[in-house]
Design a binder for these strands. Sequence first.
DNA 1: TAGATTGTTAATCGATTAACAATC
DNA 2: TAGATTGTTAATCGATTAACAATC
Lengths: 213, 213
Amino acid sequence: MRLRKISGAVVRRLPLYLRVLEEASRDGDKELMSSQELGERAGVSPALVRKDLAWFGEFGKQGVGYDVNNLKMELRRILHLDRDIPIALVGVGSLGHALARYFRRRYATDPGFQLNIVALFDADPAKQGEVIDGLTVEAPDKIREVSRELSLRMAIIAVPADAAQDVVDQCVDAGIHLLLNFAPVKLRVPDGVHLVNADLSLELQRLAYYMRD
Amino acid sequence: MRLRKISGAVVRRLPLYLRVLEEASRDGDKELMSSQELGERAGVSPALVRKDLAWFGEFGKQGVGYDVNNLKMELRRILHLDRDIPIALVGVGSLGHALARYFRRRYATDPGFQLNIVALFDADPAKQGEVIDGLTVEAPDKIREVSRELSLRMAIIAVPADAAQDVVDQCVDAGIHLLLNFAPVKLRVPDGVHLVNADLSLELQRLAYYMRD
DNA sequence: TAGATTGTTAATCGATTAACAATC
DNA sequence: TAGATTGTTAATCGATTAACAATC
């Protein structure tokens, strides 16, 4: 099922669909949903919803639609969200600290939330040993060791720009191949490592283009 | 110059080019840069660099390349980054608080950084009156008034999901038409209002798709 | 001048939409 | 059965790349 490679555009929409289904499921809206409605709620055309899902199997019933609960489970499986995902967070400055608190709170309170930050790292010796929300901040040279212990494969990078490439290299070295980067810098990663940039300044700058005078 | 409408894909790359030029300019690398090098540093093909820039004018010299300083200024102008942009931040929870500190520090220390958070809002009465980095947290019903005083046109939304739509409506009502949203929810905005989503959970979920077993 | 690189047009590639037979 | 909606193919649309004349 992972034979043909799926385009990034398709993958980007899957979590959107999943969210719509989670909401419908939680609110008990209905047990069935058409591509029409799923599309409306996700901000995507019905045809595209059907085409996206068809890459992974035949989940719907003609004349009926999709079973909300079933499709939710399928999407969770496809996205590997059918079990918890342990995550490392590197860089516990104000942004990293806030991200740690935000995601850990969400994990603790939202039963359908599988993203679990389980390790914190920071190069600042003054921060090492500090306990944040039950987690002790470690030195970055412990990444490899901790990564092995906890089977880490995903990390959030929230360090300053000039430290980011080193941290990424260490993560990759430790077998972590899924990276969400907040540092405002272009990072190089080897094949097989997936890097997503969450560069907030860049987003604001592109918004500025549309400014009315 | 803003007659033909430029695609979002093009606009998204402009801040990337700008960053490369700022770095080259700061490091004094060189005064001229070819589309080849600019592309390499930005992670884009040379042909695309030239095509993107050509939408806005003829900035290069055949056989020579682009003048780093000149192109930097042009891009700043195009992106409306040739002057400071005052920004409101709504929602001073842990994430909003961190964002405020991060951007305000960056504005204060980085001379080429034009994004200036100048107003904070939060619905929690316990937070109102609190001073963060020199800014007093106000009630959201002050958005319109403060917006007029400070000529705000851009806002960062860092409130809980269930409050986000209301806040956005208030912002739009106050003439703010550029929005960066962190709440994990699909928001509706009228025509002419530009909304960029920075949904961090969604990004992590899509990364999870690529997880190796 | 000779070499290099732009700006631009044509070709290619990929993603989205439209349409409809299959079928629940 | 009749009505509805899927899964899929063909048509369209848009974005990227290749190529090259213009020219610094």
